[in-house]
Design a binder for these strands. Sequence first.
RNA 1: GCGCCUUUAGCUCAGUUGGAUAGAGCAACGGCCUUCUAAGCCGUGUGUCGGGAGUUCGAAUCUCUCAAGGCGCACCA
Length: 565
Amino acid sequence: MNYKSIIADKIAKAAELNVDDVQKLIEIPPKPEMGDFAFPCFQLAKVFRKAPNLIAQELSEKIDKEGLERVETVGGYLNFFVDKASFSKGVIEKILAEKDVYGHSKIGDGKTVTIDFSSPNIAKPFHVGHLCSTAIGNSLYKILSSQGYNCVGINHLGDWGTQFGKLIAAYERWVDEEALEKEPIKELLRIYVKFHDEAEKDPSLEDIARQHFKNLEDGHEKEVKLWQKIKDVSLMEFNRIYDMLNIKFDSYAGESFYNDKMDAVVEELKQKNLLVESKGAQVVNLDEYNMPPCIILKADGASIYATRDLAAAIYRKKTYDFYKNIYVVGMDQSLHFKQVFTTLKLMGYEWADNCVHVGFGLVKFADKKLSTRKGDVIFLEDLLNEGIARAKQAIEEKNPSLENKDEVAKKVGLGAVIFTYLKNNREREIIFNFDDILSFDGETGPYVQYSYARAKSILRRAEEEKFATSADFTRLSSQEEFELVKLLASFNEAILLSIEKYEPSIVTRYIIDVAKAFNKFYNLCPILSCEDEGLKAARLSLVEATTYVIKNGLALLGIDVVEKM
RNA sequence: GCGCCUUUAGCUCAGUUGGAUAGAGCAACGGCCUUCUAAGCCGUGUGUCGGGAGUUCGAAUCUCUCAAGGCGCACCA
């Protein structure tokens, strides 16, 4: 039960209009002095053949004012001021009753969503760019789960493809087993880079690599063994990072998993007369969709990523019967996904429309380019450790007597990094800069965590006082208090909007707003020293309600709160 | 050349689906700790919303066009 629909109902009755249409028009005024909700009457002018301000005037007289403080008209706007006491009471009591599940809903019950995210390439470093897909995917997983959707997190490991031919060729020639034991990814990266250097001088190496990959696909023992070894050591390193970020997957079915499922796809394409030969390759023609063809089999008969993605999509539909099938992959691959989805549609799969590519901008560097082939990368682990180190340093400066500093530093440091990655519109590029990503001031992860810690500190002290008067919500009358209450009330709306747009940053921004409103309230309204017992209790319950919203909100981003910092 | 994305304050970015005087953070300057954690709060200043045209009561938001930057355009993923 929310106020927006109550107000929509009142307007609908007074104006004799459809409730849903009215609700869509209701907006929140730019400034609180203008009201809590507003109904613009401009569009009604045509229907009623009257000036908007007249319509607003007439409606304001006809409307049922119960539960409202007052209704004002300004020009063509009808502005509603809700009854603060009953609104605050309703919101706060709901939060305190629902606690850890406040903001959650069941709208996704019975619907399964597969989310393909993170998906690093085996044998390559997990660098700062990989956190985009990892953080966004993990957050969407949590956001969708909170609304009842059954999520399946899939780490579509890049553990197949001609790059393995290159790696095997490089391994046979230049590997240092001792280094591989100590720092596997670094050694694999070194020989991979060396391969590209050598291949420039001797192009025949490329042919050898292709042959190795062909052998791997055909199951030759030597290649399979080396591939498994490379995969094992890589996964160990990836898991260290996933553990650090507390990210789990339901499936690690990567590209290799679909190796034996591609023939069926090729066969099906043939049967449906979609496959044509072009320049020696087998492709699906997409001319009528104004796209280049989707390559299914290369001229040498080997598979390609589009083949695997087709097999994977079909497998996921069969296995999970998804409601939505989400791919959290960089924007640079949008054409590829368009091609794959269109091909699925051509195969007669209507559910192709439920496949969604959630793209994001790339991580860039101000001066240099990030290139795995040149070995020019910043490891994600180094960034995370730097964040933790800086958080530790901040603790030593600001709160040296804090207990379990390392644990707090870890949560704050990681929180700062994740928060930065989830703060802006995902389609924006990130220009990599340690100081920007690890900032602790202003609209940042630590700012929100700090707000939470302050709130918890007050609640701990209140506990000691054994405070027991019942709250008098009619006393919560200041603008700071009411603005915070209104924000807390709109948590679920923010979550639903972020689902609609596949955009975690909407939740991130919402939490920033809550923390800001809380800090304002905190600075202006005395809580523990408040002499009016009823007001004190009401303020304490508002503080407690805020802690649940911040905690639940950060959880949706994959960020932990700290009780003290 | 074609397609997609981006362009809002000195910098980094929001902008509730077309609404009221376009907002935050950072940076700069000034204030607030004998009272709940100063990683905080308050105050001060800055705008051809990339340019132009159109659609209408009303445009940062929709359409067209031009420009700048990024990405992609067949056997890498």
